[in-house]
Each structure stands twice: as structure tokens, then as C-alpha cells.
Design a protein around this nucleic acid. Structure first.
Lengths: 355, 355
DNA sequence: CAGGGAACTGCAAGCGCTTGCATGAAAGCC
DNA sequence: GGCTTTCATGCAAGCGCTTGCAGTTCCCTG
């Protein structure tokens, strides 16, 4: 059986209260005592029981991380970053994957986080204010990719990124461009909507129609991208370029095109989103999001808030919700180029740079 | 404040003991009573405090998952699968990422799992029996990719898979084949060694030399694969085909070759390992491992063992360690083909099938 | 040198649950 | 019909820690 605080107290010749205070670095412990306790704890290989501390202190030292899945690179990365930061701060992480609407509903109605976490970060899961509030139950929460009032939020400027991508394609001479977005656009998930807006605004500004089948929606996976591309290629006049809502989708789209005998970028230009490590190695032009930065900011916020709970100093609720926007950038690689047959030149607006 | 068991007991007009038993489905509770308790709990939105139950019962209802990182697809997938299965069984998951040796050492010497988990699955992290025992501290543990006595283990038959890949390349006419393995081969991680053996045995059987720089080692990432490929291409006589220890490495290698103006598979054939979803969409020939199956088996084992701990029935230690081998298969796609200039035919052994 | 703090330390009451044991009631046995 | 079983429930003692409060001790002031 592992040693308990009593064993340490006995060995160090002090009370358990002092052991508790000494080990947690609280003030009002004499240096000599602190030292003796530390030595005793070390000797006994003592580690406090998290359940016991949680029960006694009312804090769990765990933060929850809610992501859709970890199949998409960006989600896995978010989990990884939050996990790192939490670990460094001495907190454990409780990951929760909410892929399906059913899983979300179940999760919201059961009380999975009840008394289980001190704070949480919610990333890219379509939830509204009510849902998030129900999850958080008053604890610190930061969201990634959601824009909610009264909740800390970090977003990537995907609107600008997709706009840049659209401009890039227009500048290359494309006129038939389709945006392959992901579903859930209707929810409070802000990414999908903003991406689409970035796309449409640039198209409109250039005098192109944005209506009809300029935008299709599908799952943000390679399979989804492939399915969407398949449909597009069956149209009488397929696009010469597509912008997708994730690198995975872009790869799926590329493969379908290739299987149809189209060359990339000769017959089809493709743009992804995220710039996951693999993108570089497949030559994918993509809208780079600094996922690491986003996750870091969110994690830092909730870790700080959780730490602040310990010190009974000031209240926490007073701070207004912070909203941080992280820049995106277009990374041009091999998957985009001029269309095979350039349409006779467009009206006005003929800048030559690729961004 | 959330309701406690006392609130429920009061409302249902029974003792807390009965509430506890009723809610957990223990026997010896009258149906009517059970019903009344359930209703009361429901009415009060009651959820037991995990910390309190853990403390009282000595069980945490958490299982730990140790993986190197979640940057590699297979690791992320393992975490995802284990997480799913655990959730279904009513258990939480505590993920731990042990990328660097430093992290591993720190993790082993501190007692991160002490009293924190009921069981754990360790996947693809180079640890020996002592390490695993230190982590487990007597709790149920299953490993993936490690072959340890007295520990439940699930492995993929990567030796056979890589052997098949090697044969495939030989059959295509390649003679200069290099295996790009991952580091840590020296550890008890069994994958790297077996893969290498699969490669070398086939080469040897075909009368090819296996010595020298037939094998190089690097990080199992795209960057690692790229670096290795760069080195290989600087050799006086670069290989016409490479087999890599992960799909990520394969992609890295492919990109470097492409950047050097080599065509794939014309000038260079590339084989990956895992068959992650993206492999299909980039046309990568690869050794498919059923990662999902492996993770499922391992997770089921520890979930079952943890569940068995609850019933004070029979002892657990009596069961001999289980070792399960999961088949691999070669998936041939576009990244492999005959070498550009076929060497004048090889001696004997000229079967024409591609496996 | 008395008095007042400040700095340490210990006491003991929980935190919210589980569970061995005791109790009482209902049911089965000869 | 008295007595043993079986079933259902309650009692109460913890599980291992944290923390408000109450001492002690010791060092400064005036």
C-alpha cells in the first residue's frame, strides 16, 4: 500500500496539517520543517491521493477538453497542446470526443463534468451558449472556434485566409471556383460560416456570381472531400479550382480528380485549410491556421483561471470575456496554378501577385 | 451546489446506503425502493461525486492511456478507440504523452498514476518490464506494440507485412531497396525490430546483401522520412525503392524525391506503414495495420479486468499473460511500380504476382 | 520587562461516498 | 407453530486529505 499523509507526518514528527501545507508550498511553514517533511515524503515515496484532495479541497485538478474527434489533425493537435500545458501546470486532462449529435446530446444531458473538472476548453464542437454554460456549470471555460458572448474565445481569421485563397485563384485566372465547406455551418461554430463568407465576398467583389452550386458541404474528412469532388466532376462544367475546409478534404478531392485523369494543378487547383505537417509533404496549397497558438492561448486562459481559484483573492466572474483572433496565412504550394485553358482576360483588377 | 447523496436519501425516504446500492445496481434492493431512489435522483439531477466514490471505494474508474504523442495518426487513433470503449464502460480516460526520453524518465520516477487510475494501456512507448510494472503498480495493464512477459500484449504482424512489401518490390524488379526505420529499435518496442527483420529476411532469402546502408533510422514523422530520403539521394547509387516505418515517413520521402525531380513510382517506389485514411487519398502503397482492432483488444482487456476488480469473486493475478497478434496486409497503390531501368533479370525466383 | 504581534504548528471537523455488520421482517421448513 | 433462512435496509466507521480556528513560541516594541 502506498504511503499516506499520516505516514509522512509520523516520520517527520509533525501533524498531517503541516505535511499538507509544507508539500503544497503554502506559507507559514518553517524552512527546516518544510525540509524535514520533504525528506520524509521522498523517503516514503509519498504521493497525495488525488481523490482525497479533490474531496477535501473541492478542486479536482483536472481540466476537460471537448473536441469533435481526434481523427482530424487539428483536433488531435489541440488535445495534445492543452494536455501539455495542463501537465506542466500539474493538472490532469479529461478528453471528451463529441463526434455525433447524439453523443453531444447525451453528453449534455448526463452530467459528465459534474464535479469532475475545474475548468474546460471546448474546441470546434457546435454548441451554443446554453450548452456551454450547462457543461461549464460556472467553471472557467475557453472555447476555440466558437463565438459566444460571455465566454473566452479564440478564433482563427479564416475569413481572411479563405479570402486570400480565393483571390489567389482568381489571380491565377480561375473563374469557376467551388468552395467545399464542412457541415454544421448553421451552428454557432463560427469557422464554417466565416470561411464561406470570405469566399463569397471576394467572389462578389470580383463580379462573379456566388449563388447556386458555388458552395457545397460535406464531412471535413478525406472521404467527405472525395465525395464532394466526385459530385462536382459530374457536373456539366466542373470547377477548375476548389477551396476546401480542411487539408483532409483537400487530399480527398485531389485523389478523386487524379483518378479521373485530371492533373493537378493543370486541370484542377486545390486549396486546403490548416497546414498540417503533411500538407507540406504533399505540396498542398493551404490556408495555414496556427492551431498550436490557438490551443495554447485557450489552455493558458483556463489554467490561469483554475490557478486563480485556489487563491481566495479576488472574484473571477468580474472579468469580461476575452476574444482573441489568430491570424491565418495562405501557403502556396504545388496544388494550385493557372487553369489549363485560360479564359480570355477578366475585366479590371489584374494584379499579378499570388497573394 | 449539486445535490449530494444525502439529499437523494432524504427525498426518497431511505438511508444513503440504500441510495448508493440502488443507484449502482447492486443486489438486495427491493424493486420499489430502487425505483423511488431513481426517481429522487433524477428529480434532483444527482450525479455521484467521483472523488468521493473513488476515495471511499478505492477505485478511480479511470484508465490511463500512454502513447508517445498524438501527432502520429496511429497513436491518435489508439487514444480515440480506447477512449470510446472506456466511456461506454463508464470509465474516464487519462491520456499521457511520453514523447521524449526525458518525459519518460520523469514520468516513471514521479508517480503520476499512483492512485489515479484503475488500469492502463501502454501503446508503442519504449518501456521495459520494470518500467511497465512501475507504472502499473499491480493494476491491470495491456500493451500495444510491446512484447513483455507477464503482460497482456497485442501486436501487429509487421514482420510479415514488411516481408510482403519487400517481396512486392523484388517482384517488381527492384534490387536496391532501403528500409527507413524509426529509432528506438533497441528498446523492447517490438515493432521496429520485427519490421527490420521482415525486410532483411526476405532480402537475404532472395540472395541480396542486407548489410551496410540497406537500413537507415530516423524519426517516424514526415520530417524524419524527408531527412532520411535526402541522405539516401546523396549516395552515389540511391535506392530505387524504400520501405518506411510509417505513412508519415513515406510521405516525407516521396516529397523529397519529387522535389529532386524524381517521379514516383518511375524513379522511386515508396511503401508506407499503417494505412491511415489519408494513404488511400495520396495513392500510397502501404502495410496496413488494423490499429482500431489492436486498440479495441487492448482496451477490452483492461476494461474487463477493471470491471472484474469490482466483483470480489476470483483473484485476477492467476491468468497468464495474453499475447494477441493482429494480421497485417500489403495494400498496393500508385506509389510502387517497376524501376525505370529494369536490371537484367534476377536469378531464379521470378513469380509474377504482386502479392 | 511586559505586552503585542507575527510566525508556526496542531486539532479536529468535515468533504461525499462505500461497505461490513447488525437489525428487522418476511418466508420457508419439518 | 416455533425456528432457521433469506432479503431488505440502516448504522456508522472510515477512505486520505484540507483548512478554519486555536494555541505556542519567539521576537519586537515602547
Amino acid at each position: 500500500m502506498p504511503a499516506t499523509i499520516d505516514d509522512v507526518a509520523r516520520l517527520a514528527g509533525v501533524s498531517t496539517a503541516t505535511v499538507s501545507r509544507a508539500l503544497r508550498g503554502l506559507p507559514n511553514v518553517a524552512p527546516a520543517t518544510r525540509d524535514r517533511v520533504a525528506r520524509a515524503a521522498n523517503l516514503l515515496d509519498y504521493v497525495p491521493d488525488p481523490a482525497a484532495s479533490a474531496l477535501a479541497a473541492g478542486r479536482t485538478n483536472v481540466i476537460g477538453v471537448v473536441v469533435p474527434t481526434i481523427g482530424r489533425w487539428s483536433h488531435a493537435r489541440i488535445l495534445e497542446v492543452v494536455s501539455d500545458i495542463a501537465t506542466t501546470a500539474g493538472l490532469d486532462v479529461l478528453p471528451v470526443m463529441l463526434a455525433s449529435p447524439a453523443a453531444r446530446d447525451f453528453f449534455l444531458t448526463s452530467h459528465p463534468f459534474r464535479r469532475r473538472v475545474d475548468g474546460l476548453v471546448v474546441a470546434e464542437v457546435p454548441l451554443d451558449v446554453t450548452d456551454v454554460a450547462r457543461l461549464a456549470e460556472g467553471r472557467p471555460v475557453a472555447t476555440i472556434g466558437l463565438e459566444l458572448d460571455d465566454v473566452d474565445t479564440v478564433l482563427a481569421d479564416e475569413q481572411a485566409g479563405v479570402a486570400a485563397a480565393t483571390r489567389h485563384l482568381l489571380d491565377l485566372g480561375h473563374t469557376d471556383i467551388t468552395f467545399i465547406g464542412d457541415t454544421d455551418s448553421t451552428a454557432t461554430l463560427v469557422g464554417p460560416r466565416r470561411r464561406r463568407e470570405g469566399f463569397e465576398s471576394v467572389l462578389a467583389a470580383a463580379g462573379h456570381p456566388t449563388s447556386g452550386d458555388r458552395v457545397v458541404e460535406t464531412q471535413p474528412t478525406a472521404t467527405g472531400g472525395a465525395a464532394a469532388m466526385t459530385l462536382l466532376l459530374e457536373q456539366p462544367r466542373p470547377p477548375t479550382a476548389v477551396i476546401t475546409a480542411s487539408d483532409e478534404m483537400a487530399l480527398g478531392a485531389m485523389e478523386v480528380a487524379r483518378a479521373r485523369g485530371l492533373s493537378i494543378p493543370g486541370d484542377l487547383s486545390v486549396v486546403g485549410l490548416d497546414d498540417q505537417p503533411i500538407a507540406q509533404y504533399v505540396g498542398l496549397t493551404t490556408v495555414a491556421r496556427d492551431v498550436t497558438r490557438m490551443a495554447t492561448v485557450a489552455a493558458d486562459w483556463v489554467v490561469a483561471a483554475v490557478a486563480a481559484m485556489e487563491t481566495p483573492g479576488e472574484g473571477v466572474a468580474a472579468v469580461p470575456a476575452r476574444h482573441r483572433m489568430v491570424r491565418t496565412s495562405l501557403v502556396v504550394r504545388r496544388s494550385t496554378g493557372p487553369p489549363a485553358m485560360v479564359v480570355d482576360d477578366r475585366d479590371g483588377d489584374s494584379r499579378g501577385d499570388l497573394d
